[in-house]
Design a protein around this nucleic acid. Structure first.
Length: 424
RNA sequence: GGUGGGGUGGCUGAGUGGUCGAAAGCACUGGUCUUGAAAACCAGCGUGUCGAGAGGCACCCAGGGUUCGAAUCCCUGCCCCACCGCCA
């Protein structure tokens, strides 16, 4: 959420800044509601002040044994006035809140202009794109060849956009998770955390998936509004919801492995083949909380932490900065890491690293005590995938495939796989 | 699933209809004292919002309700603790 005060006072400036994201802020409506709110609120509060005063004097009069009837009549009149105006205020306030919770974060000035991912700006490339002296197979064919990747089975069990893995492939999938977690805890200073994979709606509001993007989520049936997590970002970031942390606890860095569940509504027909876009996938997520002045630098280092995984695995990739139109709802600035996929002869997203500034923190009331300030201040949050496990597996299969359809296991994974050098 | 007890400020914990945003203790901050520290003593110390300020308003798990007035009474929900049942 943006600072409501800023939205109030700099409405047009903010509306202009949001255009980069392709978001149209209804300035006229906002201003009109705000004007009404102000008047009504002043009125309600002054009526409340009067009521409180009279009620107090009723108590005193009663104690003194005086007649309270005239006072009662007076205060009853106030009460009915108050009820009427308060009802109007609540209505206006609810409408303002709806607008406020639905405004995306303001993109950073350095975010490039653009409407879609085609306008993202490449920052750098790493590694050499492999060349093959045989016909390249995609991960679906490679998996079918070894009989270790089964989409029909998954389709029978559940439906489309799920996968079943067997044997060495399942082992490598698991090894990737261990490798990523160990690297981030042992080399990058993250605390490992295990969290619920089912969350309530407050948590989703906190990180920004709700109220606008409910259709992207799997919602559980039941009395309570529970959802499957679309990313570990949701439970981990919400660890600090309604908390005030001391300055010396910052920065806080968490790494969390979790499954992620996404409905993929609106992506019919996209990436229907294979394991690129699934309803369920594993991800190792990096989440950090820090003082506002540290978040820009922290995003750079978090991106490097994610890049380290790709480098250690020897996977060619590039880093891009997302343009305004491709930026997520809550993000002020995002780097995507894209891994090379030989079968598609292109780079595909494997990690997304974002700075949310105080946008999520304001929604969550996640704060810290700045010793130099009198009041608690909002934290900054950043996060990024380190990495998406399923897509990493695909990238390894395709980049390290051999003419015979076998796959060379990256050196760093072998200790996690009993020394296995090749999947065949 | 059953029975009982609870959810109050950073923590512990008092408060069961009126001057309570809330006692007390701990923690924390500042001061006195001390060579320094500790102890002792004094003072300060929740969050949000409106206001230049004085101050107003709201917040005692959440949402409704009763009342002139609710932390306190009623209803619903959520959560926690104890015991019983069931269970990976």
């Amino acid at each position: 959420m943006l600072d409501p005060k800023a939205v109030r006072s700099d409405t047009t400036t903010i509306a202009a800044a949001l255009e980069k994201k392709g978001f149209q802020l209804d300035v006229a409506q906002l201003e009109s509601l705000e004007e009404q709110r102000k008047v009504l609120q002043v009125e309600v509060e002054s009526l409340q002040a009067q009521r409180n005063k009279r009620s107090k004097s009723i108590g005193q009069a009663k104690a003194a044994g005086e007649d309270i009837e005239p006072l009662l009549a007076e205060v009853n009149e106030l009460k009915s006035q108050l009820e009427q105006i308060d009802g109007k205020l609540n209505d206006i306030q609810a409408r303002l809140d709806d607008i406020l919770w639905g405004i995306p974060n303001i993109p950073d000035p350095q975010v490039p202009e653009g409407a879609s991912e085609d306008d993202n700006v490449e920052i750098h490339r790493w590694g050499e794109v492999p060349s093959f002296d045989f016909e390249v197979r995609d991960h679906v064919d490679l998996g079918a060849g070894s009989g270790q990747l089964d989409f029909e089975g998954a389709s029978k069990i559940t439906g489309s956009r799920f996968a079943v893995m067997h044997d060495q492939l399942a082992l490598m999938h698991r090894a990737l998770i261990q490798f990523m977690l160990n690297t981030h805890t042992q080399e990058h200073g993250y605390r490992e955390v295990y969290v619920p994979f089912v969350v309530n709606s407050d948590s989703l509001r906190g990180t920004g998936q709700l109220p606008k993007f409910e259709e992207d989520l799997f919602k559980l049936h039941g009395d309570q509004a529970f959802y499957l997590i679309p990313t570990a970002e949701v439970p981990v970031t919400n660890l600090l919801r309604d908390e005030i942390v001391p300055a010396d606890a910052l920065p806080m860095k968490f790494v969390c492995h979790s499954p992620c569940f996404r409905s993929e509504a609106g992506s019919y027909g996209r990436d229907t083949r294979g394991m690129i876009r699934q309803h369920q996938f594993e991800k190792v997520e990096l989440v950090q909380f820090m003082k506002p002045e540290d978040s820009e630098g922290a995003l750079e280092s978090l991106r490097e932490h994610a890049e380290t995984i790709l480098q250690k695995l020897g996977l060619p990739y590039r880093a891009v900065m997302l343009c305004g139109g491709d930026l997520g709802f809550s993000a002020a600035r995002t780097y995507d890491l894209e891994v090379w996929l030989p079968s598609q002869a292109t780079y595909r997203e494997i990690s997304s690293c974002s700075n949310f500034r105080d946008f999520q923190a304001r929604r969550m009331k996640a704060r810290w005590r700045n010793p130099e300030a009198k009041k608690p201040e909002l934290l900054h949050t950043i996060n990024g995938s380190g990495l998406a496990v399923g897509r990493t597996l695909i990238a390894i299969m395709e980049n390290f495939q051999q003419a015979d359809g076998s796959i060379t296991v990256p050196e760093v994974l072998r200790p996690y796989m009993g020394g296995l050098e090749r999947i065949s």
